[in-house]
Amino acid sequence: MQYRSLDHFISDSKAVLSKGPIALIMVEDAIEIETTLRHHQQLGFATVVAFMPASFALARDVAESKGVLRVDYDMDREGALENAVNAVIEAAPGQWLYACYNAEYLFYPFCETRTVGELLAFHTEERRDAMLTYVVDLYADDLGAAPNAVSLDNAFLDRSGYYALARPDGTPDNHPKERQLDFFGGLRWRFEEHVPAARRKIDRISLFRAKPGLRMRDDHTFTDEEYNTYACPWHHNITASICSFRTAKALKSNPGSRDSIASFKWHNSAPFEWHSRQLLDLGLMEPGQWF
């Protein structure tokens, strides 16, 4: 099913948005669109919505796949992601939503044997309406063979170099916010001279339950501060990872950085195994009380 605009989608998709969880994929370029959509289908999302420019092609088997919807949408305008997400939040109260970009792949504990619906059912039982996700940068090992820095067969990640800082509350005394942290690491940390300070964090609230009045802000946090917490007050909760080529793509396409980066590999690079066990072992997500 294809919609000609965001407004068309919102006005005509009441039945579609009643089936969750729903993945919202923001397509910025033509790289790995189909693999991104298929990956999230296989995780068990009932509906996968691709927001993408009308000029982009989509493989027929994916376009005609049950549960995959296409919305013609311009991702170049400012605030494109949050505008689309906030429109869906208004249209689908009570539904669990997920948002990411193309060439990004969600992993959560035990995702090889458990669906995203099972994950969110458990999270809901723990009285949580949002889940913290870490963006784990992926990059090709050989930029000569993969000049756009994307290679599914030879993807690498950083196995260390991640850290967290207290998130200030913005008052004159800058007290830390309760159960909120800013997380850093990966390519945005190693090549921070090429990344604006406001874009260096690697934490997102990518899985969340829509409710009236909720809004996503431009830093992937929400207007309800409880949504931005990493855990409830009484114990640790599940966290997930978004394994993403997005930063590597940007660093190799930006004129200010592409010529100064010959390789993303360093002594703490490791081949990405495309398995949740590796991410759990590296501490890049936690199972909480879910065993």
Rank of each mutant, 00 (worst) to 15 (best):
S257Y: 03
D281A: 14
L207N: 02
K201Q: 13
Q278N: 09
A248F: 12
L280C: 07
R209Y: 03
F245P: 01
N237L: 10
L279V: 07
Y227V: 01
P233Q: 10
A240M: 04
L280V: 02
M216T: 04
I261E: 01
C232W: 04
S206P: 03
M216P: 02
P271N: 06
D281R: 11
K249C: 12
H235R: 15
S241Q: 05
R215T: 05
S263F: 01
K201L: 10
N254T: 09
K211W: 00
H275T: 02
G256D: 15
R204F: 03
A270S: 14
H220T: 10
D219A: 03
I242Q: 07
Y230D: 00
N268F: 10
N228D: 06
W266V: 12
H236K: 14
R200I: 05
H220Y: 14
K265G: 01
K265E: 08
D281K: 13
P255N: 11
R215D: 02
D218W: 07
P271Q: 04
Q278D: 11
R200G: 04
E273K: 15
P271D: 08
N254D: 15
N228P: 05
D203H: 09
S206D: 08
I261M: 01
A262W: 10
W274H: 13
E226C: 09
Y230C: 04
H235L: 08
K211G: 11
H235G: 09
T239L: 03
H236P: 02
E225T: 12
M216Y: 02
S244I: 04
F264D: 05
H267W: 13
C243R: 04
T239F: 01
D218T: 10
K211F: 14
I261A: 03
R258G: 06
F264G: 05
T239V: 02
N268V: 11
R277E: 15
L207P: 06
G256M: 12
E225H: 08
F222R: 02
H236C: 04
R277T: 14
L214K: 01
S263I: 00
L279R: 01
L207V: 06
F222V: 00
T229P: 03
R215M: 07
P255F: 08
S206Y: 05
T221M: 04
I202G: 00
S263Y: 05
I261P: 00
C232M: 11
S241C: 13
A270L: 13
N237T: 12
S206H: 02
D259L: 11
I242S: 04
P212R: 02
T221Q: 09
G213M: 08
R209A: 00
W266G: 15
K265Y: 13
A250T: 12
D219K: 02
S244N: 00
